[in-house]
Write a protein that binds this DNA or RNA. Structure first.
Lengths: 187, 187, 187, 187
DNA sequence: CATGAATGAGCCTTCATTCAT
DNA sequence: GATGAATGAAGGCTCATTCAT
């Protein structure tokens, strides 16, 4: 087991977050927090110190997913071709939806009507990211000018929600390629 | 107290179903079943007699929602103008999604990978319904020929899932009018 | 199923008693009364009419077992050889213990210290029966004179309680033959 | 309130075991586990942490009874005269039967036919203990040579099971003295 | 800081009992 | 009389949370 000799509590927090993401997406937003602690090889008290309740943990997981997405944009844009970057990012976006579909309704129960700053701001971050990637590809002439960046995401969303089975990922991944391909300028 | 004579335990069942739908959509798929029983003015044993567990209740609510949708198609088609019928049905469809968004992920945890007959068959019923309504409107010349019926539903789905707040209904209702309007043949 | 056209409630009672005996001995004294009713193809209300509570049912089962034993003595003595009668009755006694082992501790919880008429009187009936059978066999010279009838029963009891497994019946049945054989006068 | 510091949760466990023994023997094997927890001044969760279900608790109580018996043999043999040790141990054995009579049938429902290691092994331990004590007394010339150690136990068993009332202890205790007395070599 | 034992409210479920048919 | 739907008080068990170590 990867027991840290000194208390690198930040890394600990990150670890819990990863385990929690996994647990939420595979078992729903009401998994036992004790189980999450157990899977993370951490006492319930430790989990509680980092995240005082389920809501806090859900929100933290969600924010970390969005952060992952934003970081990826920067990195991909810097190291890949425009189309590859777009494609890689959209594949990541599939994972994000996985979490979003579970976390979002759960958090809405807590927020319960209050205009939520969380989804507002993270939504903007994501839009900015996809816009950046698309714009870059349009500018370099790699994809058509008339592509609405958000439509790319909505399409993935659509598959995720309309799919009859819980395993919509395969379909979504195929769709990414189709969207990229269909977005190429006709010659 | 609205004490029912025992003969119509069917009406009792229906009543529980309504309360359950309400509870699930407003408080998530893990509301206390005891609370549902309480809200339905029914002992927990009675709820249990009708639905032996959460899964059964979820499925029953879901099926009843789909049945409502199918019945509505018949009724609306028989009593309204083509466009009005389409519009009324789509408004009902918003309610359906409300339930679907909560029930579907929850049931997937139970079904857990098994190719589920439930969503397969209900999906087909719903597709048939919208197709029927659109076809009728196309035939009577009230809407354009090139409307893909499923796109109408996908659009609603999109709003439901992409909306930042839990209260996407308003937006969805507006969208229905836009879709209907946009589907009218240009002259 | 043997549904009676007219309400022969006595036979109904007898039927419940049989089912109850079976249920108690195989599943312990705290089986669900509902289950017993179900297995007897009877509504819970009917069971309740005949036996107002678990205690009443337990006692009725117990009394019927003892009655069975007493009736058997009469019958066997009238129709079999002395040794055969003794043997057959002791085999029946094994079944009786089966019930007694379960019912007796359960009833003691209800009686809770009160000097119980039930076990006193039934005990006497059983002693009288075994004494009658043994006496008859002694008189006819088929078994030794110095056999204490109660020792025959105590031996069976001993096996029933000391046996490590729940399935002591086999051992007990073997013991019956040994006892009968060992009781034969040596020549 | 006798609040224990958390380190000796072992003592806590022991305490629950004692309460459980008491509850099982006086109220049968289906007492409410919640009630046991309450009587032990412990939350139900704590009881559950130590014993995940009724079967585990029953088995633990049973094993602790046997352990008590084995420990007593050692202790008594070391500190008492041979006859006193035998007598004291047999009085303890009466308590053991009290538990055995309740626990054994209950566990058999769980084990349900499987050849149970539990009763096999504990049976051997008990036999070894009584044999040791009797042998010692025989060797020192304090009791007759022809005493079958197991018969001493079987006699107690017999009283326990054949007694009409639930309060057979008195009779059993008298019997112990008679047995010891009767086992003394005639001079 | 981390740990994990303890807590106790509350969930799901069962089941003896009642009562309308 | 028989039926079985309804009731609701527990029971078993879970799990978020606290707190002693």
């Amino acid at each position: 087991m990867d027991k840290k000799p000194r208390a690198d509590s930040l890394r600990n927090r990150e670890h819990i977050l990863n385990i929690a993401r996994e647990a939420f997406t595979t078992s729903g937003a009401s998994v036992s927090l004790d189980d999450i602690a157990k899977k993370a090889n951490v006492g319930p008290g430790t989990l509680y110190r980092h995240f005082p309740n389920r809501e806090a943990l859900l929100e933290a997981v969600y924010r970390s997913e969005v952060a992952k997405l934003c970081a990826a944009e920067k990195e991909f844009a810097a190291t890949m071709s425009t189309v590859e970057a777009l494609r890689a990012w959209m594949l990541l976006f599939i994972d994000y939806i996985d979490a979003k579909l579970v976390i979002s309704p759960a958090l809405n129960l807590y927020l319960c009507g209050e205009s939520n700053e969380l989804f507002e701001s993270t939504g903007n971050q994501i839009k900015a990211a996809i816009r950046g990637l698309v714009e870059r590809a349009v500018n370099s002439g790699d994809i058509r000018e008339d592509v609405d960046p958000l439509d790319l995401l909505r399409a993935i969303f659509g598959v995720a929600t309309t799919a009859s089975s819980a395993d919509w990922h395969q379909g979504a991944r195929k769709l990414v390629d189709i969207l990229i391909l269909g977005s190429k300028p006709q010659e």
